[in-house]
Amino acid sequence: MNEKTYSMPSYQYGEYLIWGLTAIMLVEFLNVGLNTTIPLDAPQFHASHSHPQNR
């Protein structure tokens, strides 16, 4: 298996992984709308976190 690693923001919320554009938009909304200071540093996102394609 060809394992790839991508850098993008990702946040764990319960059983959910919020990542990519959704994470960026959510963090920007919280930072601007609620005056929070959530960083947008990009943790490592591993391809193994993605959903199985055979559904």
Rank of each mutant, 00 (worst) to 15 (best):
S7G: 01
L26T: 15
M1Q: 10
W19V: 01
G20N: 10
I24V: 15
L26W: 05
Y16D: 15
Q12D: 02
L21S: 13
H46N: 12
H51G: 12
L40K: 13
G20C: 06
G14D: 04
L34M: 09
G14V: 00
M25C: 14
N35C: 10
N31S: 08
N31F: 06
D41W: 07
M8E: 13
P39L: 00
R55Q: 08
M25N: 14
N35L: 10
H49N: 09
A42V: 08
T37A: 11
L40P: 01
M8L: 11
S10Q: 14
N31K: 07
M25Q: 14
Q44T: 13
Y13K: 11
M8T: 13
P9Q: 01
I38L: 11
S50C: 12
Y6E: 12
N54G: 10
G33C: 07
N35K: 15
Y16Q: 15
W19S: 13
K4D: 09
I38P: 14
M1D: 03
V27K: 01
V27W: 03
E3S: 10
T22P: 02
N31T: 04
I18H: 02
F29E: 07
I38F: 05
N2L: 08
I18K: 05
L34V: 00
S48D: 07
D41P: 00
A23R: 08
F29I: 14
Y13S: 14
H49D: 03
M8V: 10
S7Q: 10
V27Q: 00
M1H: 03
E15D: 15
L40R: 03
H49Y: 11
H51P: 15
I24Y: 08
R55L: 14
N54P: 00
T5E: 01
P39W: 05
S50W: 11
L40D: 00
L26E: 03
K4E: 10
Y16G: 02
W19M: 05
S10L: 11
N35M: 12
M25D: 12
G33S: 12
T36W: 07
L34F: 12
S10G: 07
N35Y: 11
H51S: 13
G14P: 06
I24M: 10
F45V: 10
Y16F: 12
Y16N: 15
H49K: 00
S7I: 05
N35H: 14
I24H: 03
S7L: 10
